[in-house]
Design a binder for these strands. Structure first.
Lengths: 189, 189
DNA sequence: GTCTATACCAAGATAGAC
DNA sequence: GTCTATCTTGGTATAGAC
């Protein structure tokens, strides 16, 4: 399958941002990887702010689709949340990479208001989906001790993100697993 | 009290790193704030890598001292952990700032091996202290449902860090509080 | 210990040809 | 849609005077 240049640029930029942060990659990096010149990138993304917005929008769409797919493939609340945890685990790529929203978070001052709005929109979507899964798990009995699904969701998303940071610093994905162990143990398989 | 230039530089750099990330501040920023020239900074810190190491070492020392002070001022495991959570909450500065280790984590590729080693050393120290507090809270009955103090600590530090990211993106410290609510509810006051 | 001056490079971005 | 060429700014870092 042939991928168009714009998609190649988004792929390259997402990988760069997730491994080096928003302030840690440049048009020159993308140009080298996609094999066009810096000037040509500006044809697709007029400036870095535009690129950042496009990255977050695509990321939001991708994750929403991933959650919808998890819904279809798993029967219980616990199974769905386990699948989400697996996805965040996989996104580590062995400790080299972070989820896009985490990698953008420390560079907030370099980002446009629109990008920050997209980040918040993404987080709201995720929190809502996770809340619903805790409600489901409470009802179907697949998650133990669920008192407040909203409080659970407000904790789980930050825990996933923080666990990624822990694994990244230690260059060891077991840190991620260790951070998630407590909540995973409440899932009935 | 008069502060020497080197300390002023460290203070300025720490604030800059915590609000804009390691790749998001420059010697020019510090020079403007401390009111010396860029060239003079190199007298105190030969290069940015040296500065990063000094920042992490001081941060480690500061947090270790803060934990020791918490130990002295609070009787129970729950009270000590509540005090630590308060410190991380306060470090947000209303949603503008992160803890230094979090702000460095996304820029790992720009950091020297020595700086990364200092970050891991800091995290080990914190995990150990938190583990001990969960053990204490289990024994003195101040924390409910503690089965595995090590697993609790492996989760709490990432949760604190992830909760800071959540508050930073939303520009709302209530996200931090919401993320910590579940664990805080297990503390007997 | 701080300064001026400067070297060197990389960044984001633009103009205009093809 | 991609190129060459160029602009402007700002980054880290150094030399050498005071």
């Amino acid at each position: 399958m042939v991928t168009d240049t714009k998609t190649n640029l988004l792929n390259s930029a997402e990988h760069a941002a997730r491994t080096r942060g928003f302030d840690g990659f440049s048009y020159a990096d993308l140009a080298a990887e996609v094999k066009i010149t810096k000037a040509s990138i500006h044809h697709h993304f007029a400036n870095k702010a535009t690129l950042a917005v496009a990255l977050m929008q695509r990321y939001h769409t991708d994750l929403k689709a991933a959650c919808a797919e998890i819904d279809l493939e798993h029967a219980t609340g616990a199974a769905c949340l386990s699948a989400l945890i697996s996805r965040y685990h996989g996104a580590l790529e062995g400790g080299q990479s972070l989820c896009l929203c985490v990698s953008f978070s420390t560079s907030i001052e370099s980002l446009s208001a629109q990008t920050i709005a997209e980040m918040n929109s993404f987080r709201s979507m995720m929190i809502e989906w996770i809340s619903q899964k805790f409600r489901q798990g409470k009802e179907d009995g697949s998650i133990q001790h669920v008192l407040d699904p909203e409080a659970e969701a407000a904790a789980l998303l930050p825990l996933l993100e923080g666990a990624q940071l822990a694994a990244r610093v230690a260059q060891d994905t077991q840190r991620f697993e260790a951070a998630l162990r407590l909540v995973s143990q409440r899932f009935q398989t």
